[in-house]
Design a protein around this nucleic acid. Structure first.
Lengths: 126, 126
DNA sequence: ATATGTGCAAAGCATTTGCGGAGAT
DNA sequence: ATCTCCGCAAATGCTTTGCACATAT
Protein backbone atom coordinates (compact mmCIF):
# COMPACT_ATOMS: atom_id res chain seq x y z
CA UNK A 1 0.00 0.00 0.00
CA UNK A 2 2.23 2.75 -1.21
CA UNK A 3 0.57 5.07 -3.67
CA UNK A 4 -2.26 7.31 -2.67
CA UNK A 5 -5.17 7.11 -5.09
CA UNK A 6 -8.68 8.46 -5.07
CA UNK A 7 -10.02 4.89 -4.91
CA UNK A 8 -8.14 4.13 -1.72
CA UNK A 9 -9.14 7.43 -0.20
CA UNK A 10 -12.79 6.70 -0.97
CA UNK A 11 -12.60 3.21 0.54
CA UNK A 12 -10.89 4.51 3.68
CA UNK A 13 -13.44 7.27 3.99
CA UNK A 14 -16.37 4.88 3.67
CA UNK A 15 -15.02 2.73 6.48
CA UNK A 16 -14.22 5.73 8.62
CA UNK A 17 -17.59 7.39 8.19
CA UNK A 18 -19.50 4.25 9.10
CA UNK A 19 -20.06 3.69 12.79
CA UNK A 20 -20.33 -0.02 12.24
CA UNK A 21 -18.55 -2.83 10.41
CA UNK A 22 -19.31 -2.80 6.68
CA UNK A 23 -19.76 -5.55 4.15
CA UNK A 24 -17.52 -5.42 1.08
CA UNK A 25 -20.52 -4.45 -1.04
CA UNK A 26 -21.44 -1.71 1.42
CA UNK A 27 -17.92 -0.33 1.15
CA UNK A 28 -18.27 -0.44 -2.63
CA UNK A 29 -21.62 1.33 -2.62
CA UNK A 30 -20.46 4.05 -0.28
CA UNK A 31 -17.11 4.60 -1.97
CA UNK A 32 -18.71 4.73 -5.41
CA UNK A 33 -20.42 7.93 -4.34
CA UNK A 34 -17.05 9.66 -4.67
CA UNK A 35 -15.53 7.37 -7.32
CA UNK A 36 -18.34 5.92 -9.44
CA UNK A 37 -16.01 3.85 -11.60
CA UNK A 38 -14.69 1.96 -8.57
CA UNK A 39 -14.73 -1.81 -9.02
CA UNK A 40 -15.31 -4.49 -6.42
CA UNK A 41 -11.90 -6.03 -7.13
CA UNK A 42 -10.18 -2.86 -5.98
CA UNK A 43 -12.29 -2.87 -2.84
CA UNK A 44 -11.22 -6.41 -2.01
CA UNK A 45 -7.58 -5.70 -2.83
CA UNK A 46 -7.58 -2.61 -0.64
CA UNK A 47 -9.37 -4.31 2.23
CA UNK A 48 -6.87 -7.14 2.10
CA UNK A 49 -3.95 -4.74 2.22
CA UNK A 50 -5.44 -2.81 5.14
CA UNK A 51 -6.02 -6.03 7.03
CA UNK A 52 -2.46 -7.17 6.43
CA UNK A 53 -1.11 -3.96 7.86
CA UNK A 54 -3.56 -4.40 10.73
CA UNK A 55 -5.40 -1.14 10.15
CA UNK A 56 -8.62 -3.05 9.55
CA UNK A 57 -10.15 -5.92 11.41
CA UNK A 58 -12.61 -8.46 10.12
CA UNK A 59 -15.91 -9.13 11.86
CA UNK A 60 -17.25 -12.56 11.00
CA UNK A 61 -20.74 -13.48 12.11
CA UNK A 62 -21.97 -17.02 11.63
CA UNK A 63 -23.78 -17.41 8.34
CA UNK A 64 -22.93 -13.93 7.13
CA UNK A 65 -20.36 -12.42 4.87
CA UNK A 66 -17.40 -10.79 6.56
CA UNK A 67 -17.60 -7.18 7.63
CA UNK A 68 -14.72 -4.75 7.96
CA UNK A 69 -13.99 -1.96 10.39
CA UNK A 70 -10.97 0.06 11.44
CA UNK A 71 -9.20 -1.61 14.31
CA UNK A 72 -10.01 0.12 17.57
CA UNK A 73 -8.96 -2.14 20.36
CA UNK A 74 -10.55 -5.16 21.91
CA UNK A 75 -14.33 -5.18 21.65
CA UNK A 76 -17.25 -7.40 20.79
CA UNK A 77 -20.37 -7.23 18.64
CA UNK A 78 -24.11 -7.22 18.97
CA UNK A 79 -26.21 -8.38 16.04
CA UNK A 80 -29.85 -7.29 15.95
CA UNK A 81 -32.01 -10.20 14.85
CA UNK A 82 -34.71 -7.80 13.71
CA UNK A 83 -32.81 -5.33 11.51
CA UNK A 84 -29.55 -7.22 10.97
CA UNK A 85 -27.36 -4.28 11.97
CA UNK A 86 -24.16 -5.06 13.81
CA UNK A 87 -23.13 -2.82 16.70
CA UNK A 88 -19.83 -2.54 18.53
CA UNK A 89 -19.94 -3.42 22.22
CA UNK A 90 -17.07 -1.98 24.18
CA UNK A 91 -17.74 -3.89 27.36
CA UNK A 92 -15.93 -7.19 27.81
CA UNK A 93 -16.73 -9.98 30.24
CA UNK A 94 -13.02 -10.36 30.86
CA UNK A 95 -11.25 -13.59 31.58
CA UNK A 96 -12.58 -16.96 30.46
CA UNK A 97 -9.66 -18.93 31.86
CA UNK A 98 -11.77 -20.86 34.35
CA UNK A 99 -14.20 -22.08 31.68
CA UNK A 100 -11.76 -24.49 30.10
CA UNK A 101 -10.52 -27.90 31.23
CA UNK A 102 -7.32 -28.09 33.27
CA UNK A 103 -4.20 -27.71 31.16
CA UNK A 104 -5.92 -25.52 28.57
CA UNK A 105 -4.59 -22.02 28.12
CA UNK A 106 -6.93 -19.27 26.90
CA UNK A 107 -5.16 -16.48 25.09
CA UNK A 108 -8.02 -14.85 23.24
CA UNK A 109 -11.77 -14.89 22.92
CA UNK A 110 -14.65 -13.72 20.82
CA UNK A 111 -18.14 -12.91 22.00
CA UNK A 112 -21.13 -12.20 19.80
CA UNK A 113 -24.45 -11.17 21.28
CA UNK A 114 -27.78 -11.48 19.53
CA UNK A 115 -31.08 -9.83 20.29
CA UNK A 116 -32.97 -6.68 19.48
CA UNK A 117 -31.38 -3.28 19.34
CA UNK A 118 -32.97 -0.26 21.01
CA UNK A 119 -34.46 0.96 17.71
CA UNK A 120 -36.20 -2.34 17.05
CA UNK A 121 -37.33 -2.75 20.65
CA UNK A 122 -39.07 0.61 20.43
CA UNK A 123 -40.62 -0.09 17.05
CA UNK A 124 -43.87 -1.95 16.69
CA UNK A 125 -43.16 -5.64 17.34
CA UNK A 126 -43.42 -8.09 14.47
CA UNK B 1 -36.43 -36.28 6.22
CA UNK B 2 -38.69 -39.24 5.79
CA UNK B 3 -37.14 -42.11 3.92
CA UNK B 4 -34.18 -43.99 5.29
CA UNK B 5 -31.43 -44.46 2.74
CA UNK B 6 -27.91 -45.75 2.95
CA UNK B 7 -26.60 -42.29 2.11
CA UNK B 8 -28.32 -40.70 5.08
CA UNK B 9 -27.20 -43.49 7.35
CA UNK B 10 -23.61 -43.01 6.26
CA UNK B 11 -23.76 -39.26 6.80
CA UNK B 12 -25.29 -39.67 10.25
CA UNK B 13 -22.71 -42.25 11.16
CA UNK B 14 -19.82 -40.05 10.10
CA UNK B 15 -21.06 -37.24 12.30
CA UNK B 16 -21.72 -39.58 15.19
CA UNK B 17 -18.37 -41.29 15.05
CA UNK B 18 -16.46 -38.03 15.04
CA UNK B 19 -15.74 -36.53 18.42
CA UNK B 20 -15.54 -33.09 16.91
CA UNK B 21 -17.44 -30.85 14.49
CA UNK B 22 -16.83 -31.87 10.88
CA UNK B 23 -16.51 -29.89 7.67
CA UNK B 24 -18.88 -30.80 4.84
CA UNK B 25 -15.97 -32.31 2.91
CA UNK B 26 -14.93 -34.32 5.95
CA UNK B 27 -18.44 -35.70 6.20
CA UNK B 28 -18.28 -36.58 2.52
CA UNK B 29 -14.91 -38.31 2.83
CA UNK B 30 -15.94 -40.32 5.86
CA UNK B 31 -19.36 -41.28 4.53
CA UNK B 32 -17.93 -42.30 1.17
CA UNK B 33 -16.13 -45.12 2.94
CA UNK B 34 -19.50 -46.86 3.23
CA UNK B 35 -21.17 -45.32 0.17
CA UNK B 36 -18.49 -44.48 -2.41
CA UNK B 37 -20.96 -43.05 -4.92
CA UNK B 38 -22.14 -40.44 -2.42
CA UNK B 39 -22.20 -36.93 -3.86
CA UNK B 40 -21.49 -33.68 -2.10
CA UNK B 41 -24.94 -32.34 -3.00
CA UNK B 42 -26.55 -35.08 -0.96
CA UNK B 43 -24.27 -34.26 1.95
CA UNK B 44 -25.33 -30.63 1.87
CA UNK B 45 -28.99 -31.50 1.46
CA UNK B 46 -28.86 -33.92 4.37
CA UNK B 47 -26.93 -31.53 6.59
CA UNK B 48 -29.44 -28.83 5.81
CA UNK B 49 -32.35 -31.07 6.71
CA UNK B 50 -30.72 -32.19 9.96
CA UNK B 51 -30.07 -28.58 10.89
CA UNK B 52 -33.65 -27.63 10.14
CA UNK B 53 -34.96 -30.34 12.43
CA UNK B 54 -32.40 -29.16 14.98
CA UNK B 55 -30.57 -32.47 15.18
CA UNK B 56 -27.38 -30.79 13.99
CA UNK B 57 -25.82 -27.53 14.91
CA UNK B 58 -23.39 -25.45 12.94
CA UNK B 59 -20.06 -24.36 14.35
CA UNK B 60 -18.72 -21.34 12.53
CA UNK B 61 -15.21 -20.16 13.26
CA UNK B 62 -14.04 -16.90 11.72
CA UNK B 63 -12.34 -17.41 8.39
CA UNK B 64 -13.22 -21.08 8.20
CA UNK B 65 -15.88 -23.12 6.51
CA UNK B 66 -18.77 -24.21 8.70
CA UNK B 67 -18.48 -27.38 10.72
CA UNK B 68 -21.36 -29.62 11.79
CA UNK B 69 -21.99 -31.61 14.95
CA UNK B 70 -24.97 -33.26 16.56
CA UNK B 71 -26.74 -30.84 18.86
CA UNK B 72 -26.04 -31.47 22.50
CA UNK B 73 -27.28 -28.49 24.39
CA UNK B 74 -25.95 -25.01 24.79
CA UNK B 75 -22.18 -24.96 24.75
CA UNK B 76 -19.24 -23.06 23.35
CA UNK B 77 -16.01 -23.90 21.58
CA UNK B 78 -12.32 -23.71 22.17
CA UNK B 79 -10.03 -23.58 19.16
CA UNK B 80 -6.41 -24.52 19.71
CA UNK B 81 -4.16 -22.14 17.82
CA UNK B 82 -1.41 -24.72 17.74
CA UNK B 83 -3.16 -27.81 16.42
CA UNK B 84 -6.37 -26.32 15.02
CA UNK B 85 -8.60 -28.78 16.81
CA UNK B 86 -11.95 -27.50 18.02
CA UNK B 87 -13.13 -28.61 21.45
CA UNK B 88 -16.53 -28.35 23.06
CA UNK B 89 -16.67 -26.27 26.23
CA UNK B 90 -19.66 -26.98 28.37
CA UNK B 91 -19.21 -24.11 30.78
CA UNK B 92 -21.07 -20.90 29.97
CA UNK B 93 -20.43 -17.43 31.35
CA UNK B 94 -24.18 -16.90 31.57
CA UNK B 95 -25.93 -13.62 31.11
CA UNK B 96 -24.50 -10.82 29.00
CA UNK B 97 -27.47 -8.49 29.45
CA UNK B 98 -25.52 -5.80 31.27
CA UNK B 99 -22.88 -5.54 28.55
CA UNK B 100 -25.16 -3.83 26.06
CA UNK B 101 -26.38 -0.23 25.83
CA UNK B 102 -29.72 0.65 27.48
CA UNK B 103 -32.69 -0.45 25.41
CA UNK B 104 -30.85 -3.38 23.86
CA UNK B 105 -32.22 -6.84 24.54
CA UNK B 106 -29.86 -9.84 24.53
CA UNK B 107 -31.55 -13.11 23.66
CA UNK B 108 -28.60 -15.25 22.67
CA UNK B 109 -24.83 -15.33 22.59
CA UNK B 110 -21.84 -17.12 21.19
CA UNK B 111 -18.43 -17.46 22.75
CA UNK B 112 -15.32 -18.81 21.08
CA UNK B 113 -12.11 -19.23 23.02
CA UNK B 114 -8.67 -19.48 21.49
CA UNK B 115 -5.46 -20.66 22.99
CA UNK B 116 -3.52 -23.86 23.45
CA UNK B 117 -5.09 -27.13 24.42
CA UNK B 118 -3.63 -29.37 27.11
CA UNK B 119 -1.91 -31.58 24.54
CA UNK B 120 -0.16 -28.66 22.90
CA UNK B 121 0.75 -27.03 26.21
CA UNK B 122 2.52 -30.21 27.25
CA UNK B 123 4.27 -30.66 23.93
CA UNK B 124 7.52 -28.91 23.16
CA UNK B 125 6.74 -25.21 22.52
CA UNK B 126 7.12 -23.80 19.02
C1' DA C 1 9.80 6.83 -17.37
C1' DT C 2 8.59 3.36 -14.52
C1' DA C 3 6.40 0.58 -11.46
C1' DT C 4 2.18 0.26 -9.00
C1' DG C 5 -2.85 0.57 -9.14
C1' DT C 6 -7.28 -0.09 -11.48
C1' DG C 7 -11.26 -2.06 -14.02
C1' DC C 8 -12.90 -5.73 -16.44
C1' DA C 9 -13.80 -10.29 -17.15
C1' DA C 10 -12.65 -14.85 -16.15
C1' DA C 11 -11.42 -18.18 -12.68
C1' DG C 12 -11.93 -20.27 -7.99
C1' DC C 13 -14.37 -22.19 -4.03
C1' DA C 14 -18.19 -23.51 -1.24
C1' DT C 15 -22.88 -24.17 -1.52
C1' DT C 16 -27.42 -24.64 -3.86
C1' DT C 17 -30.57 -26.14 -7.38
C1' DG C 18 -32.82 -28.36 -11.65
C1' DC C 19 -33.56 -32.53 -13.64
C1' DG C 20 -33.99 -37.23 -15.10
C1' DG C 21 -33.31 -41.58 -13.28
C1' DA C 22 -32.96 -44.74 -8.94
C1' DG C 23 -34.87 -46.45 -4.94
C1' DA C 24 -37.87 -46.66 -0.54
C1' DT C 25 -42.47 -47.25 0.73
C1' DA D 1 -47.05 -47.45 -8.44
C1' DT D 2 -45.85 -43.50 -6.38
C1' DC D 3 -43.33 -40.10 -4.56
C1' DT D 4 -39.06 -39.04 -2.42
C1' DC D 5 -34.14 -39.14 -2.95
C1' DC D 6 -29.80 -39.26 -5.41
C1' DG D 7 -25.99 -38.01 -8.51
C1' DC D 8 -24.63 -35.11 -11.96
C1' DA D 9 -23.82 -30.87 -13.79
C1' DA D 10 -25.03 -26.23 -14.10
C1' DA D 11 -26.01 -22.14 -11.47
C1' DT D 12 -25.05 -19.01 -7.51
C1' DG D 13 -22.73 -15.72 -4.65
C1' DC D 14 -18.55 -14.11 -2.75
C1' DT D 15 -13.75 -13.48 -3.42
C1' DT D 16 -9.45 -13.70 -6.09
C1' DT D 17 -6.60 -13.23 -10.13
C1' DG D 18 -4.65 -12.23 -15.00
C1' DC D 19 -4.13 -8.82 -18.07
C1' DA D 20 -3.85 -4.46 -20.52
C1' DC D 21 -4.41 0.24 -19.67
C1' DA D 22 -4.21 4.22 -16.47
C1' DT D 23 -1.83 6.94 -13.22
C1' DA D 24 1.06 8.37 -9.03
C1' DT D 25 5.63 9.09 -8.23
Amino acid sequence: MERSTKQRAAIREALQRADRPLLATEVLDMAQKSVPSLGIATVYRTLKALIEQESLQVVELPGENPRFEFAHGHHHHFCCKACGRVYDIHACPGDFGQMVPPGFQVSDHEVTLYGRCADCENAIPT
